[in-house]
């Protein structure tokens, strides 16, 4: 194991309550706090823990997006990534495009492992890791809650609907991570200072030979249907009466 690539997405911070624009053209993003996608933070943490256990592993954080996505890559460097690459574009990046850009980087970097979050909390697509594994023609282990690396292999416990499943994949492989894999570290001020000196390369989709195709046109963005607020009952017998009257018990 020599190199781990971690894919990072700049997203609206998970604490922000997202609102839809009145003209249905999208969600309001002006002045909204942006952060590293929380699942990607877990992905990076896992890469760093593997690096800290082993000898001489390089962790490369990569992202695709606007120039300001350098901020999230700086966060990744402050957490402990060795260097970063931004594929800079102002275009809306669909999962398939992202997968092709990451594939181009994987061909250049030849990592032993690629970590991603299982999904980004903006588009909730849950596609990029699987698509990347497909076009890279390598194994995928999605929804990881435990990762063990041994010679040339990864033993991955996956969170599936029925419980937990364990698979073994040959490296190189793509691993997408779930919530309970680890708890990401806090970044300390000296690390933020140090991160400023770490290399951050900026490239483009063109330079990688990837086109940002639009496969899914977004026609409109609307708020979800709201549920009506119901009644408050005063005690358990009243609750039971309500449920009986509704035919629920």
């Amino acid at each position: 194991m020599q190199k781990i690539m971690v894919c990072i997405k700049r997203v609206v911070d998970y604490n922000v309550r997202v609102r839809v624009k009145p003209d249905a053209s999208g969600v309001m993003l002006d002045g909204v706090k942006m952060s590293v996608n929380p699942f990607d933070e877990i992905a990076l943490e896992e890469a760093l823990r593997i690096k800290e256990r082993g000898a001489n592993i390089e962790v490369v954080a990569v992202s695709i997006g606007v120039a300001d996505a350098q901020q999230q890559l700086r966060t990744a460097l402050a957490m402990g990534a060795d260097r970063a690459i931004l594929v800079q574009t102002d275009a809306a990046v669909e999962p398939l495009t992202a997968a092709h850009a990451f594939l181009a980087l994987a061909k250049k970097e030849t990592p032993d492992l690629i970590f991603l979050g299982k999904q980004a909390i903006d588009d909730d697509a849950n596609q990029t890791g699987q698509m990347l594994a497909a076009i890279w023609d390598r194994p995928q282990a999605t929804y990881a809650s435990k990762v063990e690396i041994s010679a040339g292999k990864a033993n991955v416990t996956r969170e599936v609907d029925a419980g937990l499943e364990t698979i073994e994949v040959d490296l190189p492989a793509v691993i997408t991570v779930d919530l309970r894999l680890n708890e990401p570290r806090y970044v300390k001020l000296p690390d933020i200072m140090k991160a400023k000196k770490k290399p951050l390369e900026v490239t483009s989709l063109d330079a990688l030979g990837v086109s940002a195709g639009v496969h899914l046109k977004v026609l409109k963005t609307e708020p979800p249907a709201q549920r009506q607020k119901g009644v408050i009952v005063k005690d358990v017998p009243e609750l039971v009466a309500f449920l009986k009257q509704k035919g629920l018990i």
């Binding site: 398939l96 596609q127 698509m131 076009i135």
Partner: peptide, 23 residues
């Protein structure tokens, strides 16, 4: 859109080079 489908379908979309509508 279960853990089975969410794992499998994007891999198929990737192989086919087409988009996926999730959820």
């Amino acid at each position: 859109s279960t853990s089975f489908g969410k794992d499998l379908m994007p891999r198929v979309a990737g192989l086919l080079g087409v988009a996926q509508v999730s959820d």
